[in-house]
Design a protein around this nucleic acid. Structure first.
Lengths: 202, 202
DNA sequence: CTATTTATTTACCGTTCGGTATTTAATACT
DNA sequence: AGTATTAAATACCGAACGGTAAATAAATAG
């Protein structure tokens, strides 16, 4: 049985593709941040009327969370991929190089939405702000685990505290995002990464 | 002639100190960002009525710029101070150590207002966003100049591109700001700085 | 052909936004 | 004492905000 000939649902069919709409919403949230993106601008970008957005995704907060999920599992999926590299150095290398290429890519908004989505915010968006900080902390913790694993396999110097080194790499990573948002190019970011990797601890 | 017995101005005297008011406004903009800070919240924090703010400082944008000037010449004046250290290494060392202590200081909002004031923004605040990016770029350029000077005095390896190294330091610096905003402590930031300084090029 | 279901469209809601006109109070000058 | 000057306080403005009720259109099920 072919999926393309599935029985169509009961009522009036949606005139827009939900996944495509989320992609369009991503571009707005990415450039504007959670609060900077107004429902009016989102409505324009999605090309559908406002009640349709609410019917399909819930309110602004719910829409943002759905967009976030797409963002994490899509554009930045290279992060968890990097952690699976055979050595710790290769893992960090891939993480930073792919990040430089991603953050400075002119084909989509510059910088990382996890950083610029809601670094600060007005009253009422603190929850989103905390959630984004939580995702960032999550990546940092995953990197710590990766380095602890490497350390236990003699792949990372035992003199270095994995949590501290992970925070150092995360700091560079987030700094690269700020740089990209302010206009840094892929090449400039790669030069930064090169300086970081040049001094890999041994 | 004593300044304390200066002739008082003509009309009804101001009931609030303008500089103190700017300090209070700074705390709001620092935590909320330019757009996240509402005039209502600013009014509450300053303890004066809204028309008084407009009469004293102009509109929200003008108020923010006056606050910015105080911020640059006050809390973060250590940056230009650091550049005057005798050697390049001492300059960067002081820059990063003082930054760690400043960004993680729990006595005022965490992070740097130059970074979190308007990393992203809605329509209408792009000018402020660009101005903040300009200030960040200004610091980076000043650091580049400092390293070029050091290079010409055999105080910095001639194999390293000063602009690239300055961007690396600026990237770490801005990353530290993001980390601080998300809750990183002074001690954690100092550990990051220690890792950066451990690999000073020679 | 009718009923049911679902989506789109239009028009609108109350709240908050940044900003101000107007009135009232406090001081100095004459 | 009266007037000019300056600031504070009250009350308000239009616009933009996120969000929704009600009506209409397009499909399936019987």
């Amino acid at each position: 049985m072919n999926v393309t000939e599935m029985k169509r649902p009961r009522g009036r069919p949606s005139v827009f593709d939900h996944e495509e709409a989320l992609d369009k919403a991503l571009l707005v949230f990415w450039t504007r941040g959670y609060e900077g993106a107004s429902m009016a601008e989102l409505t324009d970008a999605l090309g559908i009327n406002r009640p349709s957005i609410y019917a399909a995704f819930g309110n602004k907060e719910a829409l943002f969370r759905k967009v976030m999920r797409k963002y994490l599992s899509g554009p930045v999926s290279y992060v968890s991929e990097a952690f699976q590299q055979p050595t710790a150095k290769q893992a960090v290398e891939m993480l930073l190089i792919k990040s430089a290429e991603f953050l400075g890519n002119p084909d989509h908004p510059k910088g990382c939405m996890l950083v610029q989505g809601a670094l600060t915010c007005g009253q009422g968006a603190e929850l989103i702000q905390q959630e984004l900080a939580g995702f960032r902390k999550g990546y940092e913790n995953a990197l710590t685990k990766r380095l602890e694993f490497a350390q236990s396999h003699h792949d990372f110097p035992k003199e270095i505290n994995p949590a501290e080194f992970a925070k150092y790499i995360a700091t560079v990573h987030q700094g690269m995002s700020v740089q990209a948002t302010s206009g840094a190019t892929k090449e400039e970011l790669l030069a930064v990464v090169s300086l970081v990797l040049k001094n890999w601890p041994r």
